[in-house]
Simulated assay, not measured.
Amino acid sequence: MSVPVSVTGRVAARVRKDFRAEEAGQALRELATAETGNQDVERVHAAVVLAADGDLGRLRQAVRLSHTDWRDVLMGTGLEHGGWPEVLEREFGPVS
């Protein structure tokens, strides 16, 4: 399975962990279409993955929401405030 260029390795690894094998590729393709505005792409992608909690339907909803307002995707994921880099590292591991 190839990983879209815009999805970082640690986010892709979490997708493969959270989603069933037959859904992971689709989840990665959908994730790559999320609107990230001028924000850190990995932050928004991580928020989508956390919001989805392993459910492809929820991932699609979060991606659609990102097209309305990417900031709404961050809400409730722990990535909405200034300490988001620490949350990202805790949830997805260190940058490799």
Score class of each variant (00 low, 15 high):
G76K: 10
Q61E: 15
R60T: 14
L74R: 07
G25E: 15
T33H: 07
D55W: 07
S96Q: 02
W84D: 08
P85R: 12
D72K: 15
G76M: 13
V3Q: 11
A51N: 08
V49L: 06
S6R: 12
E42G: 10
S6P: 05
H45C: 06
G83D: 14
T8D: 07
P94E: 15
R29P: 02
V41N: 01
D69E: 06
W70S: 09
G93F: 11
P4W: 06
T36H: 12
L31A: 11
G93M: 15
Q26P: 01
G93Q: 10
R29K: 12
V49F: 11
L74F: 12
L88A: 03
D55E: 00
L88K: 09
R71N: 09
A47L: 03
N38P: 00
D40P: 09
A47D: 03
E30K: 05
M1F: 08
L28F: 01
T33N: 14
L28V: 01
V5K: 14
D40V: 07
E89Y: 10
G57H: 05
S6N: 15
A27W: 02
A46F: 09
A52I: 02
V49P: 01
V95C: 03
H45I: 04
G78Y: 09
V87Y: 02
D72T: 06
D55L: 02
V44D: 05
V95P: 00
T68Q: 13
T36F: 08
L50A: 07
P85N: 08
L65W: 04
E86N: 10
R20P: 04
P94S: 15
L65N: 03
R10P: 08
G54I: 09
G25A: 13
G83Y: 13
T8Y: 11
